[in-house]
Write a protein that binds this DNA or RNA. Sequence first.
DNA 1: CCTACCGATCGGTAGG
DNA 2: CCTACCGATCGGTAGG
Lengths: 233, 233
Amino acid sequence: MSRGAKRAATREESEETRQTILRTAEQLFMEYGYRAVSTRQIADACGLTQPALYHYFADKQTLYVEVIKENTGKTQSAMERIVRRNEGIAERLRLIVRYLYNTTQHDISQMLHDIQHELDPQMRELLNQLFITGLIAPLASIFEEGIQTGFLRHPSMGGLDATNAAYLFMSMLPRFLSRPPLTVPEHGPSHASRHGLKIEQAEMLVQVLLYGLAEQGVGERHQVETVDSDHTL
Amino acid sequence: MSRGAKRAATREESEETRQTILRTAEQLFMEYGYRAVSTRQIADACGLTQPALYHYFADKQTLYVEVIKENTGKTQSAMERIVRRNEGIAERLRLIVRYLYNTTQHDISQMLHDIQHELDPQMRELLNQLFITGLIAPLASIFEEGIQTGFLRHPSMGGLDATNAAYLFMSMLPRFLSRPPLTVPEHGPSHASRHGLKIEQAEMLVQVLLYGLAEQGVGERHQVETVDSDHTL
DNA sequence: CCTACCGATCGGTAGG
DNA sequence: CCTACCGATCGGTAGG
């Protein structure tokens, strides 16, 4: 084999190793958190020695930042693709929930905690911006459309503005306690698909976000209970 | 001073020191997580040397477990008191949100992460049970009442069962990104209290949970979209 | 409740 | 990409 061929192969392998490190680090960081994952764990899982990592990434923090950049980039692409689809608000929200459930099994709040508490202020600011422009903004654009078209309640009528709706949406995603929070209720001994009630988790979540838990037009009267503010005189 | 008086004072001081450690450890653990808080940090914040902690608690894990026990116990009392109040479902939920916002500024999902990943299986099981009986159960009893009285949509009609509703409720609580997710929208240059729209965060959250973001009876038709299951044949 | 100290593990570097 | 190694910090113990 010529030197040229050998070097090309080495370059490819090097890039492959880099990708392996990124994927492995992502899994570990997202499951256990930045602090709890050691550089030796990552190296072991890649079949490398720990110092070898420092050939590919300057330090642990840089590796973490690259992981988040990669992850956020992919998610942003997928979300913008979904946002532009020719579907209703609800359906596009369902698609986003399914995408996030399938790709990131982790709790996103852990990632945010690490960004706030374990990183340099500079990196923190960078990743916060990535999070907002990559995840919050596409989501908010859907909610904004819903508000403009009158499908969603206007902020001045007791609704949420688009950005806050996006944050609330994100906060509803995590599986609580590592066990799925939204299991389908089994009523009676018959199979779940009996009454045509097998509602998927993603759909259930969007249902609640859009229409709430209350029976329509029944029970207590609080619907758009606009608080008269000037109590305090 | 007699020996007896001195010894009594010492015993009181000892208990006081123990409480100081518990309060300090709670703040640190809840803000930064189990792993990120060192026993030396806790000791420093209490004005003690690090080995002194081991006079009061067998080890770091035991201290953490005691913190959670104390915390959960107080919260359980408060929640059960609120549950028994003579108020509507929505108002009691608002009171619970306010209580949790005022007492625990932290993200509860971090506590759950630490319980799942940083503790012995035995302690994990214990604290999971405490979490369920202390926080989920009281909340679920409110939702169950709402379902029984017909105020909340029945699980067989596309609603959530009481336990899952409780989990969802808890997951909606955290302030996202350490910044409040539900800021009140300011519309126009006028003061926020202009149109009588100053809706408090706790109330806003309960509003969304109960009635959703959608305009009532407007836009897409998905209200109780019961999925016909036998698509796959 | 202190001083002194332990073994283990951490992130990172030197040098090849 | 490895071996060898560094200083710092961790949770915890000994002994008083």
